[in-house]
Design a protein around this nucleic acid. Structure first.
Lengths: 152, 152
DNA sequence: TCAAGCTTGATGCAATTGCATCTATTGCCT
DNA sequence: AGGCAATAGATGCAATTGCATCAAGCTTGA
């Protein structure tokens, strides 16, 4: 657990599992969405944050903080969401540079449809594989790996 | 028996942690490689498999099985690796369609250099954050999520 | 033997990502 | 106020990815 240049076999194995499993699960969820004719996961992430933010909306830089997307990525993703009528861009009164992004009713509906599929994937891929205690344990362990780490 | 198959809060949290942490850690490792002027992680994955395979090399479809990359992705990645002289493509005697990919000495050297940086990232990002027992536990839990699941 | 179908790997084209840079504001400091 | 760095967001261009399809070789079965 002390920091070294070379990783322990246990650390390597945990890393490998983490990378492989996360990629595999993400692809499964992505595939389910596509099979249902729905947008990709990235859209869900943004719509989810905006739905939670409510009518006040969020600034693009706030979305960047919450989602880990790169700035240019958010910029273009929002352009696509707006083109599809799922969000709207509003000017900000006290900052001429910025804008506020607000989810539209159509955006909420799309999010709802996506969750029906996405949530089922989560239930099947994770919920059905581990017990409640195990799920809590894996969350706690992964929380330690986060930056900044969370304890809960 | 109309199941809604809605995921439990614990499952949702575990999923969210898994997705966020894996992305964050992957980006950190990727960043470290780039800062060292080295190729991206995907190259390492392939070079690693080929190095383990030894002089006999591997067929592209075997790399696909081992790495989870898409077929077109491997095809183009191998083209780039070959262009850089890190691997060589050899014809296969008993199958005129196929080829065998073998790592070159330069490829082994590049892999070694990448490991110096990549391994350090793993040690810092994972090895330094959890104890040996915790690492074993997270590996076991993630192993249950794999498809097919592994028990170890 | 040979047509039909499967496997292996490549590729044209469109969409997305990454990088660098650009514009427009804002805030700070003198 | 004026100059200057910092912030917010967009965008041109190159590289990569995803999708669909292709070509070549192998295999099978009548």
């Amino acid at each position: 657990m002390t920091e070294k240049a070379a990783p322990s076999p246990e650390a390597i194995k945990a890393w490998a599992r983490l990378m492989r499993v996360s990629r595999q699960l993400m692809e499964s969820a992505e595939e389910a969405l596509k099979a249902a004719g729905l947008p990709p996961l990235a859209w869900y992430d943004v719509l989810h944050e905006l739905a939670e933010a409510g009518e006040g909306g969020l600034r693009p830089f706030q979305l960047i903080e919450r989602t880990l997307f790169a700035q240019y990525n958010i910029s273009r993703l929002l352009a696509r969401l707006e083109a599809d009528g799922l969000v709207e861009k509003l000017p900000v009164a006290d900052d001429g540079r910025g804008q506020t992004i607000r989810i539209t009713p159509k955006g909420r509906e799309t999010r709802r449809q996506m969750w029906a599929v996405y949530g089922r994937s989560i239930a099947e891929l994770v919920g059905a594989k581990l017990s409640g205690d195990e799920l809590i344990m894996v969350s706690a362990l992964l929380g330690q790996l986060r930056h900044p780490p969370v304890v809960d």
